[in-house]
């Protein structure tokens, strides 16, 4: 098994764990954490695929992931602001549609 294949399997397992957390956890902060883990698993898949040809390292996925890391932190920051505002308005740490 090559390193690329190994880490794409790890990326798969990570995304599974993240989706599990996203579904079962209801605290907003935990959901944001789970989405971040999910994003990292996709990054890992892309970077692992950049290594599939042993001759060279593909710079295009690296550039995509570098862009993605900054987008992820922007989205996380905005999500945290939304969650904080929601919490201070309602006093709830989870979304209302999660009620029965």
């Amino acid at each position: 098994m090559t390193q690329a294949a190994f880490f794409s399997l790890v990326a798969g397992a990570l995304s599974g764990i993240a989706i599990y957390g996203l579904i079962t956890q209801r605290h907003l902060l935990r959901r944001i954490l789970a989405v971040n883990v999910l994003g990292n698993s996709v990054f890992l898949l892309l970077v692992a695929l950049a290594r599939r040809d042993p001759d060279y390292v593909d710079p295009v996925p690296h550039a995509m992931v570098l862009t993605g890391i900054v987008i992820a932190v922007s989205a996380t920051a905005f999500a945290l602001v939304l969650a904080r505002r929601y919490y201070s308005e309602t006093g709830l740490t989870h979304l209302p549609e999660d009620e029965e």
Binding site: A4, L9, G12, S15, I17, Y20, I23, L45
Partner: peptide
């Protein structure tokens, strides 16, 4: 959680297999 745990495990396993499978196939 409102979602049954076994269903969450199922969905998570499916997603994990999908992502890992895509990687495995593309590498191959």
């Amino acid at each position: 959680p409102v979602f049954p745990r076994w269903a969450a495990v199922g969905v998570a396993a499916l997603v994990g297999a999908l992502v890992g499978g895509i990687g495995w196939v593309v590498v191959g």
